[in-house]
Simulated scan of single mutants.
Amino acid sequence: MRPMGAAGRVWAHVGQPFSERGYGAVVLGAGRMGAACAFFLRRLAPELRLLLVERGGLPNEEGATVLAPGVWTALNVSPERRAEAAWTRAQTEREFGDVSWQARPLLELLTREAAGAVPTPSLLPRFPELAHLVDPEALPFAQVDEGAATYRPGAVALACGQRAVRAGADLLLNTHAHLTPGGVRLDRLTVTNTHEVVTHESREVLAGVVIVAMGADGPPGAEHGLGLHTGHGRAYRQAPRLNTPSGEATPVLRVDGLTLRPQHGGFTLIPPIHHRDPHGYTPIGGRLTGVPVGIRRETLEDLVERMGVLPPLGTEALEVGRSLADIPGAWLALPDGDPTAPPRHEEVAPGLHLLLGGPHADTLGLAVAYDLAAKVAGVEERPWEG
C-alpha cells in the first residue's frame, strides 16, 4: 500500500511489469474527458485506488481530443447550462497550465436575419483580414460571441493526466481495454520489428467502478463486451487546412455549421456533422473534378456547397490531399447519436459509467467530467451552482 498523498505509478511500455489485480475505480481512456474525470475523482475521493488506462500515449496523438476544435463559445448554449460552460472556461483558462488560451471573438455568418444578428458589412472594418474570405452579400448577417476563445484540448488532457498521477492515480499507457463482468481485461501492446502492433500480455483487473471514456469506442465497447445497448453513435470527422492568412486577432468564423479556426497562420476547417455514420462504415476519400482526393465525400460536398460564400475554398488554398491519410481525422462520439447533443454521462450497468464528450466538449466537457466524478465519489457539490 502506498501512503496517502504519494504520487501514482506510470507504466509506459511492456518492459515495466504490471501485476496489479484490482482497483476501486478504473477510467478507460485518457483523452480530455477521461483524464479530467480521473483528476477530479482523485480530488474528491483520494482514498479510492484509481487506475487510468490509455491505448496510446498521453495525450493520444490519434484520438479525437487532439483534433478537437478547441473553441470555447457560449453561442447556442442553452440558458440552463451556461453556468457549466462558464465553469469549464474558468478551469481551462486558469487551472491547467499552458493550453495556449487565446481570447478571440466568434462570428457566425448567416444568410438570413436572426435574433441578435447585426449586418455583416458593419463588422468587416473591424476585421479587415476577413475581407478576402467571405462574400458579405451572400452572408449579410452575423451573430457575435465577444467572449469566445481558442485553446489546445490535448494540453488539457496532458495536464489533467499529470495532475491525476501526482495526486495518486496509476497510469497504464499503450494498453487496449476490454470490459468484463466486474472489471476489465487489459491487453498491453507492443510493436514488432516490422512495425506491427501486437498484444504482449493480457491481465484481468477487478474494479468496483469502471468509467468508459474511450470516445467513439466507448459505446461499442460496452455493447460488444457486456451485451449492453446504449443507443449512442459516432461519426468520422476530418480537419482539412485552408492556407489563407490568419493572425492573433483573427476571429473564429462559423458559416452554416462549418467552423474556420485560426491556427498556425492559416485556418483549420471543422466541418459540420449532419448525422451519425452507420455501423460498419469505413471512411473513403472523395473526388474533385474527377480526381481522387483525401477529403471524404460527405465533407467534400459540404465544402463545395460553401465555395460561393467562402471563395478561398475554391482555390489551391484548400488542402485536399491524395488519400484519406493526408487529411487528419478521427472518430467522434455522438451522445444519443445526435450531433447537437451536449456531453453526458450515464450509468449503463451497476458500477459501469459511460462518459461521452462529442461535438460540444470544448465548451461543456470538463463540467460533465466533474459531475461524474462527484457522483462516483458520493459528493453533492456542483461548483458552478454556488
Rank of each mutant, 00 (worst) to 15 (best):
H200M: 07
E347R: 10
A249E: 15
P69K: 03
E248F: 07
R276G: 15
L334C: 00
H132S: 13
E204W: 03
L352D: 04
H132W: 03
L366A: 09
L28A: 02
E113V: 12
L260K: 04
A325E: 15
R2V: 14
A12M: 12
P181W: 07
E381K: 11
I327E: 07
E54A: 09
L310T: 06
G285T: 09
E196T: 02
R276Q: 15
Q102R: 13
A142L: 04
V10M: 02
R43V: 15
R296V: 14
E305W: 05
L51K: 07
D98A: 12
V304H: 08
N60F: 05
L48R: 15
T250M: 00
N243K: 13
L172W: 07
R49D: 14
P220R: 06
E301L: 15
D277C: 08
I295T: 07
A177W: 03
A325I: 10
S19R: 15
G247Q: 13
V252Y: 09
T250L: 03
L372H: 01
L364N: 06
G154T: 09
A117S: 14
R94W: 11
E347H: 03
V14F: 04
L28V: 15
C160N: 11
A222M: 12
R82D: 08
D338N: 15
D277S: 12
R104W: 03
Q238L: 01
W87C: 03
A74D: 12
A333E: 11
A138N: 00
S323F: 11
A249L: 15
A6L: 14
T299I: 14
L242E: 01
A36T: 15
P283S: 05
Q102W: 08
V53N: 11
R254C: 15
R82A: 10
A341G: 01
E204M: 06
R241K: 13
P383Y: 00
L173E: 11
A159S: 13
E20K: 10
E129C: 00
R163K: 13
D371P: 10
L48I: 14
A12G: 09
